[in-house]
Simulated scan of single mutants.
Amino acid sequence: MASGDHHHGKTNVVYQFNPADYGPFNVLDGDHFNNFTGGSYYMTTPKEDNIMLYRLYGGNATAEGQHWTLEPRKGNDGYRHDAAVLKPWNTLEHAVELIVPRGVHMYEGFVGRQKGYLGGGWQVFIPREVVKSV
C-alpha cells in the first residue's frame, strides 16, 4: 500500500499487510502475523532520527524480546490484558527502553487475542536479531 503517516504520528508506514498478504512474517520463525488482530499489521520506520520503545519483561521473558510499546507501561492487569501476555511467558516486573534509529523496519498493529486475553492494545514487533543490533 502507499507510504504515509501512521495514526500516532511517530512512524511512517512503509506497507500495510493483511491475511491475504502477510509479508515478511511468512519467512520468520513462528506465525507472528497471528499476534496481530486479524493478521493485519503495518511495516513502519521511525519518522524522526530515532524513536524510543518500551518493554516490560521478567521470568521467561528477556530484555531483548520482540514485542514493544510506544509508551511506557506498568506491569498491571490492564497491561497484561491489552498486550495479551500470559503469566508463564512474562512476569512484567522489569522495564527496558530501546532507541530505534530511522530506517529500521518495525511491524506495528493491534495485539491479537491469546488464551483468555482479548488483546487490542498497540504493539511494535521487531525481530530479535534486529533488537540485538540496534
Rank of each mutant, 00 (worst) to 15 (best):
P101A: 12
Y41Q: 13
I99Q: 15
D77C: 04
V130W: 14
L118R: 10
A63G: 13
G23C: 15
H6C: 05
L53Y: 05
D29E: 13
G78Y: 07
H8S: 04
G23K: 09
W122Q: 06
A95E: 07
T11E: 10
G4H: 13
P88S: 12
Q123H: 03
S40E: 03
T11P: 04
G75V: 06
H105F: 10
S3C: 15
A61K: 14
P24V: 00
R128H: 11
V96Q: 06
A20T: 05
K10H: 09
F36N: 02
G112W: 01
G116C: 10
E48C: 09
K87A: 12
P72W: 03
T91S: 15
T37F: 02
L56E: 01
Q114V: 10
N18A: 07
N50W: 06
D5P: 10
G23F: 10
A2I: 11
D21S: 02
F36R: 00
L118M: 09
L53N: 01
N35W: 02
R55S: 03
P24T: 00
G116K: 10
L86W: 07
N90R: 03
Q66I: 00
G119K: 06
W89H: 14
D82L: 08
M106I: 05
E97S: 13
G121Q: 04
P46K: 04
H81Y: 11
G116F: 07
E129C: 03
R73N: 07
G103A: 15
V134Y: 06
A2K: 15
L56F: 10
R80W: 09
T62I: 07
G23A: 11
G39S: 02
H32V: 07
M52E: 10
V85K: 00
G9W: 15
M52V: 05
D31M: 05
D31N: 12
G119V: 00
T62C: 13
P88N: 12
E129G: 08
V14N: 10
S133P: 06
A84L: 00
V14I: 09
L70V: 06
Q114A: 13
S40V: 15
